[in-house]
Every structure is written in structure tokens, then in C-alpha cells.
């Protein structure tokens, strides 16, 4: 499989190690990535809020670039995924809008046709590759307890995105399980991380994060697993800000899913990913094989009377 890779501004320039982890793992599943001259998706809370027409035209330009190469787009950020998917939905449903956008793209030698699909790494791994194939490649399981946060913009609007069940998301939990992790349920699983209002009202934004973190901390996970660079930054750096504002004491490590996948595949260079983390975690450095691990989990299950 070959994709036009859309890391998005936030991942590319603020979370390059997460991008690195994606580029490290996908070749192991026969996926090839191509880089194109994309702009920002663009982000709904800024550009779309200012001008809906500008948003849809820039998104159409991005999609048209991939279409010109005959490629589907692989997104890595929930925000980019939603933005491009909503724009595509609108353009495919509304021929007038599509024609208007194409009038402008013509000057750039581009045309939006609607031929490329938008796929997030989450969907690539769960829907295309599948957890059986992933777990068959795991050589170094990661036996930690985690909570997952799929992210607002991968879940909603459910009528357009279809990534997972918007009220009861389970796929990221299953992906974690396939690497040997134990996913925990928590109260506010589908709640926003607060990033969406950070630019407008930062105290409100961190108060939302405080609520979310409180719900997470209750189940005492070793780490939070996300599929979006913006959620990553909000959880990881935001905890400290929330602690400062509200006197809380959150200190939970955060991972972008493919970092853990790279570790589980025992790929070289994963230490350069972990070196960039601000909340550190001691991952079991064991060389234990999968078989040993399996027996371990079996042993720990209490036999029913």
C-alpha cells in the first residue's frame, strides 16, 4: 500500500518523534509513504472559524495534490483527519461548492475530483492491517496498564468519520491489547482534552484538561495512549500547566500509539523517541519472548471456582 502522508503541522514541527515512529513502523506492514507539498489541513478552530470558504478551498487543494498522484491520504493527526474528511464530505455532497472550489484550483493546475480517500493511521492499523497481523509481529510485549483517548476529531461527527463507535470507542484499546498492554476503562473516555479553546481562553482549556485527567487518574494507569499530536501535547505538557493553575499533581506519561508499536516490534532507535518525552516512564527492558509473556498472563488469571 502506498499513501500520500499527511503528518500535519503540529506533528511535523512540534512532535517529530511521533512522526518518526510512524515512519519507522509502516514499512513493516508493506506501507510506503510519499511526501507532497501540503499546507496545514487547515485547522477548523482557526481558519474555518474565520472563513468557511477558505477552509474548504485549502483542504480541497491538499486532497487534489494526492489525487493528482493517484494516492489516498494517510493522516496522523485527529484534527487533520476530521478537517480533510469533512471537507471531502461537503465537496462530494455539494456539486456547486465543488465547482466553485475547482474554479480557483484550476489556476494552480489542480482539480478536486473526489477520488482519494482519507485514512488515519488508526484506521490503517485496525481496519486495513488488523490486530492479528500486528500481534503476530510483536517480539517485545509492553506489559503496562493504559487508558486510551481516541480523540474528539477521530470520533465525531460519527456520521462522517466512522473511525470507531463515538460513544463507546474500543478499537484503540484492542490495538493496545495486541501489544501486551492492559487497557483500563474510565469515566470520561470520550471527553475532549481541552485543546480546542486553548487559544481563546487558556484557563477554561486547562480546567477541561483537569476534569479529564481527574477521571484518568482515578483508574491509576501507567500511561495515556493517544492518536493525535495535539492531544499528546495537551496531555503531556498541559498536565504541568494544570498542576500550576489548580494545584493538582498529575504526572502520567503519554504515548502516540505507533511509538509503543515500534517498541513492541523491537525496532532499533526507539530510545530516540523516548528521549523526547517530558514525563518519563521505565518501560520493562526485558528481552522476554512472547511465549513467556503469554504464560505469565495465563498464570495471573485466577482460576474460577
Amino acid at each position: 500500500m502506498k499513501f500520500a502522508f499527511f503528518p500535519g503541522c503540529t506533528m511535523a514541527y512540534r512532535l517529530p518523534f511521533a512522526e518518526k515512529s510512524i515512519r519507522m513502523v509502516v514499512p513493516h506492514f508493506d506501507v510506503e509513504l510519499v511526501d507532497l507539498a501540503f499546507t496545514c489541513c487547515p485547522e477548523p478552530n482557526t481558519v474555518r472559524a474565520l472563513s468557511d470558504d477558505t477552509w474548504i478551498t485549502l483542504a480541497a487543494r491538499n486532497i487534489a495534490l494526492a489525487e493528482a498522484e493517484g494516492l489516498n491520504i494517510l493522516t496522523a493527526c485527529a484534527g487533520c483527519h476530521e478537517s480533510l474528511s469533512l471537507a471531502k464530505h461537503e465537496l462530494d455532497e455539494n456539486p456547486d461548492r465543488k465547482n466553485k472550489v475547482n474554479e480557483l484550483l484550476k489556476d494552480l493546475g489542480l482539480e478536486y475530483k473526489g477520488t482519494s480517500t482519507i485514512v488515519h493511521v488508526h484506521q490503517l492499523l485496525f481496519d486495513e492491517i488488523g490486530i492479528e497481523s500486528i500481534s503476530s509481529k510483536v517480539v517485545r510485549p509492553v506489559p503496562i496498564k493504559v487508558v486510551t483517548h481516541t480523540g474528539c476529531h477521530l470520533l465525531r461527527p460519527e456520521r462522517v468519520l466512522h473511525v470507531d463507535n463515538a460513544e463507546v470507542p474500543v478499537k484503540l484499546d484492542m490495538l493496545c491489547e495486541s501489544l501486551g498492554m492492559v487497557p483500563l476503562e474510565y469515566m470520561d473516555k470520550t471527553m475532549c482534552c481541552g485543546a480546542g479553546v486553548r487559544k481563546i481562553n487558556s484557563v477554561t482549556s486547562y480546567a477541561i484538561l483537569r476534569e479529564k485527567m481527574t477521571s484518568i487518574a482515578m483508574v491509576e494507569p501507567n500511561a495515556i495512549v493517544v492518536f493525535c499530536p495535539t492531544c499528546f501535547i495537551t496531555f503531556e505538557s498541559g498536565q504541568r500547566v494544570a498542576n500550576r493553575i489548580f494545584g493538582t499533581d498529575f504526572k502520567i506519561p503519554v504515548f502516540y500509539y505507533t511509538e509503543l508499536l515500534a517498541i513492541a516490534l523491537n525496532l532499533p532507535e526507539t530510545d530516540i523517541l523516548l528521549a523526547e518525552h517530558r514525563v518519563k516512564i521505565e518501560l520493562p527492558t526485558s528481552t522476554e519472548t512472547k511465549e513467556e509473556n503469554k504464560t505469565e498472563t495465563k498464570d495471573s488469571i485466577p482460576s474460577s471456582p
Binding site: 511535523a12 512522526e19 511526501d35 501540503f38 470558504d53 485549502l58 487543494r61
Partner: peptide
């Protein structure tokens, strides 16, 4: 930082194209 990590330099859109779209769509 990207370079140090061995990440490719990402191709960029022509700024004039982006400006043109900003002007033509009202932003």
C-alpha cells in the same frame, strides 16, 4: 530537530498559491 531525527525535509506549498487562495476566498 527533524534533520537530527533523520526525518525528511517536507516539501512546502508555494506561498503565493496560498496567498492567492486566501484572497480569492475572503480570508
Amino acid at each position: 530537530q527533524r534533520e537530527d531525527m533523520g526525518l525528511p525535509k517536507l516539501p512546502r506549498a508555494d506561498p503565493e498559491d496560498v496567498k492567492m487562495l486566501f484572497r480569492a476566498t475572503g480570508a
